[in-house]
Design a protein around this nucleic acid. Sequence first.
RNA 1: GUGGGCGUAGUGUAGCGGUUAACACGUCAGGUUGUGGCCCUGAAGAUCGUGGGUUCAAAUCCCAUCGUCCACCCCA
Length: 420
Amino acid sequence: MSKQYQAPRGTLDVLPEVQPWWDAVLDAARATAALFGYERIETPMFEDASLFTRGVGEVTDIVQKEMYVFKDRGGQDLALRPEGTAPVCRAYLEHGMHNLPQPVRLWYVMPNFRYDRPQAGRYREHHQFGVEVIGEEGAAVDAEVIELLWRLYERLGLSGLTLHINSIGDRNCRPAYLETLRAYYADKLDRVCEDCRKRYDTNPLRLLDCKNERCHPVIEGAPAFTDYLCDACGEHFSQLRAYLEAVGIGYSINPRLVRGLDYYTRTVFEVQPREEGGQSSIGGGGRYDGLIEELGGRPTPGIGFGTGIERIIINMKRQSAKVADRTGPLVFVVCQAAAARTAGYKLASDLRRAGVAAVVGAADRSLKSQMRHADALGTRYGAIIGERELADGTVALKDLRDGSQEALALDEVAARVKST
RNA sequence: GUGGGCGUAGUGUAGCGGUUAACACGUCAGGUUGUGGCCCUGAAGAUCGUGGGUUCAAAUCCCAUCGUCCACCCCA
């Protein structure tokens, strides 16, 4: 007895019956990206592991605990892509996209891999729709990227979403803010959790988004970065807000929003659904003005987001969104007599070449069985070839919606069926 | 990495110590002469996640293990 294979832990088979949901999201993503003038890019599912340790940040959870790393047979250290921004930036550099008119606007749909404990809305392989705008630092593109994400959700009919935004400064003002934050925490370390005591040393910004109840009172009183931004960052942030207001996108400034990837600078944002459970965030992103340089390029600003397709679908289902029904082929060719099979097979072939989707019933199945199959697929027409039809070269074309039936010559079927 | 719930045919469930493990949906085949959707009949399909233990007897109790779901954490 052989082993029962299962999909690896935390992975999902996307079966035919759920494809309409994926189509709805993918179609909307593609259309929204096109509307904003973004072009598609795809990058490999695995990369040099150091792309992520350098890009995403050595001390992030993604790199430290969640990245799938392996050596290939040539001894290369590789990693399954845990996120999309660093690879896209790598591609930008590798292909000299700085020679294109700036900024470059890109979008993608790609699987990401993170070794997490799976639960609702969290998988070891999940798919993201994302965009990146590289080569422009003005706040207008920050607003544009956020708006693109927001319009996607609107198009999909999602409601009850909250947009959280924050600014986490840049290399000019962040060191000073971090000192202020550390100074504030210095005499309160006995009141926060163990993780926070570590963060105090390794990654103080993350003190702000600690979910531990115990730390909340301390976080409440913490200085907000938005009060310590340098002039340039402060101006950038207020411009972003003005742009968002101009296009009617409501937001909430969340001083505790810092995000878990080290490359973020200035603008960070996240969209959260009203109902918790199945994860609190369906999409998020931010500006990464230092990333391209970190990866070996000239100083080049960038901003982008990623939004989880599985999480979008969870929320659509939760809100009883409607998507298109599955559609079967237009014609199901039923061969009543064994002798009719060749004619039936050829009819299906001719129909397809004429652009009509067609399926042939299985051999040795009764007429009734084949008709049942046609019905189960949601087919519009049954094209029946039996002894009589075979004898005079015709087809009995039955409209399964009203049950009407007519005799047609074999070569008339395509035109007849297309005319409806 | 931490904690909790659950693992019975493809799916959803019933059975919770005692002879052939039940039902629904689905699948397949039929319901007389070549025709689907409703209805009717029949069939196939489960070593009750796996391993060990308790017992005369275990799907039913215990332990372990794996899987899964949910929460924490993290994030999409």
